[in-house]
């Protein structure tokens, strides 16, 4: 457990957030891996996993969020997921198959591992999962970082200038990005 924040009332939230993180991921992975069997798909799994992580951010602040590796590289994860999804869609073409053909095909036997079935739609779903996860975490992370930046700028009394001048966002160093 990390050091508790001075604000006492936050304690509940923080322990709650920490407790929920693991189950949220377990649920997410379960939803995803069950494949075609039941309600839910990569999309909802991704959002649920993201909610678990975002709760950490809410409870512990942006700096803590940054500690979770998966949140810092979330946008990259998102594009890894897109790549995965694209591959499942287009790789069959290379094998002379139709676009978006899944293995195993209709009525073909699938490799079972307990209740898990190894079918390519699961790979596709993992891709979807990563994209959505990356989107939710990455987007909110961006907002959180923006807030931190604002606070820093405001402390230096430059915030108003940097905003009223309009246009691009000024860096902490005052250098205009883009």
């Amino acid at each position: 457990m990390p050091a508790l924040n001075p604000q006492k009332h936050a304690g509940m939230l923080q322990s709650g957030a920490r407790i929920i993180l693991l189950p949220s991921w377990v649920i997410a992975i379960a939803i995803m891996l069950k494949g075609y069997a039941d309600v839910g798909d990569g999309f909802s799994a991704g959002v649920i996993a993201a909610l678990g992580v975002l709760l950490q951010g809410l409870a512990f602040g942006t700096d803590e969020l940054e500690q979770i590796t998966l949140s810092r590289i979330a946008p990259i994860l998102s594009f890894v997921g897109l790549g995965l999804a694209l591959l499942t869609a287009f790789v069959p073409i290379l094998f002379g198959e139709n676009l978006f053909t899944h293995w195993p095909g209709i009525n073909e036997h699938a490799v079972h591992f307990g209740v898990l079935e190894f079918i390519t739609p699961v790979v596709f779903d993992i891709g979807v999962f990563l994209i959505v996860y990356g989107f939710c975490v990455g987007g909110l992370h961006a907002i959180a970082r923006e807030e931190v930046r604002q606070v820093r700028l405001r402390d230096r009394g430059r915030y108003l200038r940097s905003t009223t001048r309009g246009g691009s966002l000024a860096d902490e160093s005052g250098e205009v990005r883009l």
């Binding site: 990259i76 594009f79 897109l82 790549g83 694209l86 287009f90 073409i93 676009l99």
Partner: peptide, 18 residues
Amino acid sequence: IAVPIAVLWFGGFVLAVL
């Protein structure tokens, strides 16, 4: 038929990372 779409899709994906 899929080739132009595939080219653009993968191209967009790669460029998004670069």
